[in-house]
Simulated assay, not measured.
Amino acid sequence: MGRRVTQRDIARMTGVSQATVSVVLNETGTVRIAPETRQRVLDAIRATGYVADVVGRRLADRSNRILGVFTYEPVFPSATADFYHPFLVGIEQRAEQLGCDLLLFTSGPHRMRLADGCIVLGRSIGRDELARLVAEHHPFVSVGRRDSPDVPYVGADYGAATAALVASAVGLGHRRLAYVGTGGPAESHLDRLRGFADACLAAGVFATHEPRRDDTLTDAVRRVLAAGVTGIFLEEPADAAELIAALAGHGRDVPGDVSVVVLGEPTRAGATPPPFDVTRFRTPRREMGWQAVDRLTEIVGGGSGSDTASRQTLLACELVPGETLKSASASKEST
């Protein structure tokens, strides 16, 4: 097959459900399987060389192999380009490998106990809600870093990725930089702004934060240009095309006059793509979903992953050079 054989593959080959394959593999006596059906499954297992995943088997000893996914905001993808799609792909792929079923919750967290454990997904999750989940001792893992020592999560190291891009800009001669975006309250935005501010401070360069109140990007651009900024770090990549157009409206070329860096991927489906390959970083979204499933199965299984310190993981983001971060000339720095 060119990939690892899963329980779903065995089920398709033998014409039974994945649950039936699981029962045969785990030799449980609680469910009766017809002898000919059991033999058909065993023959397929031998023929394909299927090997059960150790973590999945440990989960099976303690649970019903049902993992929940609870979303605190609308995340079900409307297109493959949707921001949340890779997270869900990673979750689904790893759950399939482990022989687990997924249960999507949309009506409220009070129903999470229908699953053995739950993956929570969303940019903004209230601290009170997270504290309640911890207090109830129901196994869960957050996709995304959370500001709580008790919350297990798999997140992206946005701060380090942003700092690395600041270092690239400084290395190209930029000495006046701006961060355009909210900078919070979501941890993913806080991390980006913190990485930007710390890197600028360490490099000894001018930094300003333009939070974009209720006005347009054109107004934000006017303010940062008045401050002599030659490099703009944009929090929401979906606004990249609008930002570049706003700079053009002020007579500034990208990247000839002003460099632009975007911090991740667009979070709004259908965003207008910019006219350039923008310098950015790539969030390891599929890997985050995948590892969240692994972390959850460890917690459910009571393994080493039940220790809080080992359950909080940040994955590195991949830097994408792009075409919009270029050298800053002396004349631009003096504007």
Results as ranks from 00 to 15, higher is better:
G183Q: 04
M112V: 14
R311W: 01
L172F: 00
Q93C: 02
A220T: 12
C317N: 10
T71M: 07
G29H: 06
R32V: 10
T182A: 12
A81Y: 07
R65K: 11
L314C: 07
R46G: 05
T218A: 15
P109I: 15
L103V: 13
A227F: 02
D307T: 11
E236V: 00
H137N: 12
A115T: 12
F206M: 07
D191S: 14
L165E: 08
D116Y: 09
G126E: 15
V293F: 08
F83W: 03
F87E: 09
T335I: 01
P152Q: 09
L25N: 04
R223C: 02
G322H: 09
I45V: 12
E92N: 06
A131L: 13
L315G: 06
S124G: 13
A156H: 06
T48K: 08
R311Y: 00
D253N: 01
G322T: 06
H250D: 10
T14V: 12
F233Q: 03
V205H: 02
G195M: 01
P321M: 08
I299C: 07
C317Y: 11
D239A: 13
V143W: 10
P266K: 08
R286E: 15
P255C: 04
G204E: 05
F206S: 06
I125N: 05
V229A: 01
L133C: 01
G56T: 05
S63A: 14
A292D: 03
T71C: 13
T230Y: 00
A60V: 02
T20F: 11
A81V: 03
R46F: 03
F206G: 11
W290P: 04
E333K: 07
A199E: 03
R32P: 04
P321V: 06
L315Y: 05
S304A: 15
R223S: 02
E96V: 07
V221Y: 04
A246R: 02
V300S: 05
G90W: 13
D215V: 15
V89W: 07
S304W: 01
L88P: 01
R311F: 00
H209D: 06
Q18H: 11
E236L: 08
V320Y: 10
G264K: 01
A135M: 10
C118Y: 07
H189L: 14
D9K: 11
T30V: 10
L193Q: 13
T308V: 14
A238I: 02
V254N: 00
A11P: 10
R252M: 12
R38S: 11
A309V: 06
P86C: 04
G249F: 08
V21G: 06
H110R: 14
